[in-house]
């Protein structure tokens, strides 16, 4: 025993380097990431939250200082805010529903065998690579009756009485950005769900086939249960992401007409960008953050309650 202890070469070195290997070395690799994130995201985040309780308006540079909850009081009686909140809800629900079901359908199709699969896969994933500002402009142009076909098609189908631009119609305008968002978002769901589908062991399907299960049974008894965790996490993350997603609406309608497409994130951006009222913009942002947090907590609690296993 003692002989072995004496013989262990480099044991002291190992002791000394233990500290380095397990406490310091990981941080050598991590520190650039942590420093950049802390300086560029976390510090501004704290400052941003503090702005919500201050008057910060670049157009009135001498009228600054702490104002307590004044911004939030203004928010409470701001009709535009409540309208934006309602619009955020419909924008998010509308987008995520179509994105999810169409994405799931596409993933299931791509998980089968057919001719030209590699080409088809590349083509259907393409919208995801299109820069968002360009998707927004392209769809805005498609809805324009001068150069776009959509108003004429919608009129021919009897959906519109005459070919006009729905982006200018307060009742229908939200469908424009939602359509663009669905187009842009299907590939994301298809990619993640396809990855999950491909990790389902093939033996399960073989066993099901031997037992004579129908296609529907296989889908509900094997595919869905395996996909469920992935579906839950992607839908949750995507909902938050879409609620925050301002680019499409900002480019396509700028929140108009008559604020009918104004969602909270575009309201934040226009307040900061056009009015340079950083205090009020931050108050809206804090409200949005609070709502998203509540949503996430509710979902996580529900998941705990429902998934007992």
């Amino acid at each position: 025993m003692t002989a072995r202890a004496d013989n262990a070469p480099g044991e002291t070195r190992a002791r000394g380097s233990f500290y380095i290997r397990y406490m310091v070395e990981p941080y050598l690799y991590l520190s650039p990431a942590v420093i950049v994130i802390a300086l560029v995201m976390l510090v501004p985040l704290v400052i941003g939250i503090s702005y919500a309780f201050q008057a910060v308006n670049l157009l009135r540079p001498f009228d600054t200082g702490w104002v307590g909850f004044e911004n939030f009081q203004a928010l409470w009686s701001d009709r535009k805010f409540w309208l934006a909140l309602k619009n955020t809800f419909w924008w998010t629900v509308g987008s995520i529903t179509f994105q999810f079901f169409l994405g799931l359908g596409l993933a299931l199709l791509l998980n089968t065998r057919f001719y030209g699969k590699r080409l088809v896969q590349a083509l259907v994933f393409l919208p995801w690579a299109v820069p968002t500002f360009l998707s927004a402009l392209t769809w805005a142009w498609l809805f324009n009756p001068t150069i776009g076909p959509l108003p004429h098609w919608l009129a021919a189908l009897g959906i519109l009485s005459e070919p006009y631009n729905i982006l200018g119609d307060p009742d229908l305008a939200m469908w424009g950005p939602i359509t663009a968002n669905v187009w842009f978002g299907i590939p994301f769901f298809a990619i993640t769900l396809l990855a999950a589908l491909q990790s389902i062991p093939g033996e399960l399907y073989e066993a099901a086939e031997i037992d004579g299960a129908s296609a529907w049974q296989t889908f509900t008894k094997i595919t869905l249960p395996f996909l469920a965790p992935m579906i839950a996490i992607t839908v949750m993350l995507r909902t938050i992401w879409i609620a925050n997603f301002a680019d499409l609406i900002f480019v396509m309608t700028g929140g108009g007409p008559a604020n009918s497409t104004q969602i909270l994130s575009t309201y934040i951006f226009t307040t900061a960008f056009r009015k340079l009222d950083f205090g009020y913009a931050s108050a809206i942002a804090v409200a949005l953050l609070g709502l998203l947090l509540i949503y996430a907590v509710v979902l996580l609690v529900l998941r705990r309650k429902l998934v007992k296993i």
Partner: peptide, 13 residues
């Protein structure tokens, strides 16, 4: 950093 609205930090940035 992936959860909060990025627009939140547009003013401080």
């Amino acid at each position: 950093t992936q959860m909060f609205p990025l627009l939140m930090i547009i003013a401080p940035i």
